Amino acid sequence: MQMKRIGIAIDSLAGGGAEKIVLTLAAQLKKLGHEPHLLVLMPNCDYQLPDDIPVHFCFSPEQKQIDSLWRLRHSVAQVQQWVEGLIDQFGQFDLFLSNLDKTNLLFTKASITPLYCVIHNSIEEELTRQLKLGPLAYFNMLRAKKALNGQHLVTVSKGIEREIVQSKRVSPASIRTIYNPFDIAQIRARADEENSDIPQGDYLIHVGRVAKQKRHDILFKALAKMRQPLPLVLLCNNPKKALKLAKKHGVADRVICPGFQANPFPWIKQAKLLVLSSDYEGFGNVLLEGLVCNTPVVSTRCPHGPDEILTQGLAQYLVPRRDAVALSQAMDSALMAYPDITHIDMFDRVAIAEITQAYLTLCDVQSESDQSNSLSSSGVL
Rank of each mutant, 00 (worst) to 15 (best):
L219A: 07
I218Y: 04
P50D: 02
Q213N: 07
Q2R: 15
R215K: 11
S374T: 13
D51L: 12
Q312E: 15
S174G: 12
L230I: 09
A271Y: 10
Q213A: 09
P239Y: 01
I53K: 01
I187Y: 06
D323E: 04
R215E: 08
S122R: 04
Q81P: 01
A351F: 05
E19L: 11
L360C: 04
L105V: 08
D11I: 08
Y280Q: 07
Q270M: 14
I10D: 03
K272G: 03
L310W: 06
V350G: 10
K109T: 06
K240H: 08
Y116A: 04
A26V: 00
V292A: 12
L115N: 02
I309Y: 05
H206S: 09
L230M: 10
E163P: 08
S328P: 02
H74V: 12
Q130T: 13
M336T: 13
L335F: 00
S278T: 00
T295P: 00
G150S: 04
D183V: 13
H37I: 03
L291N: 01
H216L: 11
P231W: 01
K145N: 07
I10W: 03
L318E: 10
Q200F: 06
Q261T: 02
D51T: 10
A224I: 07
R5A: 04
P303F: 12
A351C: 07
Y47A: 01
D364L: 10
T155Q: 03
P306R: 04
A144C: 15
P229V: 00
S157E: 06
E289P: 05
M3T: 15
A353N: 13
I6H: 03
A14N: 13
Q213T: 01
E19H: 12
G159R: 02
L38S: 02
M346W: 09
H37T: 03
H74W: 15
K30N: 12
L133V: 04
M336K: 12
V55Y: 01
G208F: 01
P320I: 00
D364A: 11
S196H: 08
Q92H: 12
G201A: 13
R215D: 11
D332A: 08
G208I: 00
E124F: 10
L204Q: 07
G201L: 08
F283I: 07
I309V: 11
P181F: 08
G159P: 01
A262N: 14
I187D: 11
G282D: 03
Q316A: 15
I66P: 08
A9H: 03
G85H: 05
P36G: 02
V233I: 03
K109G: 00
I187V: 13
A137M: 14
P61Q: 00
T113E: 09
G284T: 07
V275S: 04
V76E: 10
H249Q: 13
